[in-house]
């Protein structure tokens, strides 16, 4: 037996400090969050071991030692008349060996003070009991306090890994399907076009289209930075349509393997002086719009910062077309360069 398992010993002060000093990256944070979520979602009965070895109180310790050795386990629950009355661990047997009493009955050396967990509880309650008690295995009782299984830290790790793998596979399948669009469908030039109708002055639904676009880009395999830039640009453009257009307009996303083009088109009122609307701080927005946190004259400035190319065409009385373009590094969107 190893003297102290890394799972049960208390970390040294230096280790604790080291961990705090390490800054957590986005990626770490996501992984931790999902594992933490799972520790609440997964129930003990989903991960516990049901087929367990048990000992009776009359059994000689030597027999139990044999059970532990053959099954590679370090402890067994002791059951009398189908009721849990104790736990016998290797440590208890070692105590007996020191006194050369391996022929003594289990009841003489077993631990009677038992810490148990409920099968219907989340695994987080088992994790807490493991860390409080430093025990390696805990008996699991059902709602009628009957012994139904054992849980170890290994069971928890395995349960979480299986659940994570399932999550990962589901998202992978979705991503795979979407991101291979550009490889699986052969053409000289493949373009995926998404169109959204935006209503004028509909602030309540403002941003819904942008939210869908961002999600679509991530599914298509865009890197998070590109998706964020597109999301912010298209959101500002969507809000502009809502604030300024007479009859609403169309928001369009065109995805190609090497570039993403977003555009908004409306049929009025049109912009009189394009130079002027590009000035930071210039705004024609109403007080109502400003109260909502928009209309500070920063929308187009923001868009310009986010995209590689921005273009406005406008005729007063006819309408405005805003085009925004982001070039994608070749390895993203799984595309081959086609020009």
């Amino acid at each position: 037996m190893s003297p102290t398992s890394p799972l049960t010993r208390t970390p040294t002060a230096q280790e604790t400090r080291g961990r705090r000093d390490r800054s957590i990256t986005d990626k770490d944070a996501n992984a931790i969050n999902r594992v933490e979520e799972l520790s609440y979602d997964l129930k003990i009965h989903e991960v516990m071991t049901r087929q367990m070895k048990i000992a009776s109180p009359e059994m000689p310790l030597a027999n139990v030692l044999e059970i532990l050795r053959i099954n590679h386990i370090s402890g067994v629950p002791v059951v009398k008349d189908s009721e849990l009355i104790g736990i016998l661990s290797l440590e208890d047997i070692v105590r007996a060996m020191q006194k050369n009493e391996l022929s003594a009955p289990v009841s003489q050396y077993m631990t009677r003070k038992i810490i148990t967990v409920a099968s219907y509880d989340s695994i987080v309650s088992a994790i807490q009991k493991f860390s409080d008690s430093r025990l390696g295995r805990l008996p699991v009782l059902d709602e009628n306090n009957k012994l139904v299984g054992m849980i170890t830290k290994g069971d928890i790790t395995r349960g979480i890994l299986v659940a994570l793998q399932k999550d990962y596979k589901e998202e992978e399948v979705r991503r795979y399907r979407a991101s291979h669009l550009f490889e699986d469908i052969v053409s000289d030039r493949t373009t995926l076009v998404l169109r959204y109708n935006i209503k004028a002055h509909d602030f309540t639904h403002g941003g819904n289209a942008s939210s869908h676009i961002k999600r679509a880009l991530l599914r298509l395999g865009a890197d998070p930075q590109t998706a964020r830039r597109c999301g912010i640009a298209v959101y500002e453009a969507e809000i502009n349509l809502i604030i300024h257009s007479t009859n609403g307009g169309i928001l369009k996303l065109e995805v190609e393997s090497h570039r993403i083009t977003m555009s908004t088109t409306d049929d009025g009122p049109g912009i009189e002086n394009i130079e002027q609307v590009l000035q930071p701080g210039y705004s024609t927005a109403t007080e109502q719009v400003r109260e909502m946190g928009f209309g500070a004259g920063m929308g187009l400035v923001n868009i310009k910062r986010c995209v590689d190319k921005m273009d406005i065409e406008s005729t007063v009385g006819k309408g405005t077309k805003l085009t925004m373009r982001i070039y994608v590094p070749t390895e993203n969107l799984n595309g081959r360069k086609d020009d």
Partner: peptide, 17 residues
């Protein structure tokens, strides 16, 4: 941290992650 409470705040927060 914001003093605005309209739905746009959530959309903005979502876009800016």
């Amino acid at each position: 941290l914001t003093g605005l409470t309209n739905p746009q705040v959530v959309r903005t927060a979502q876009m800016a992650e």
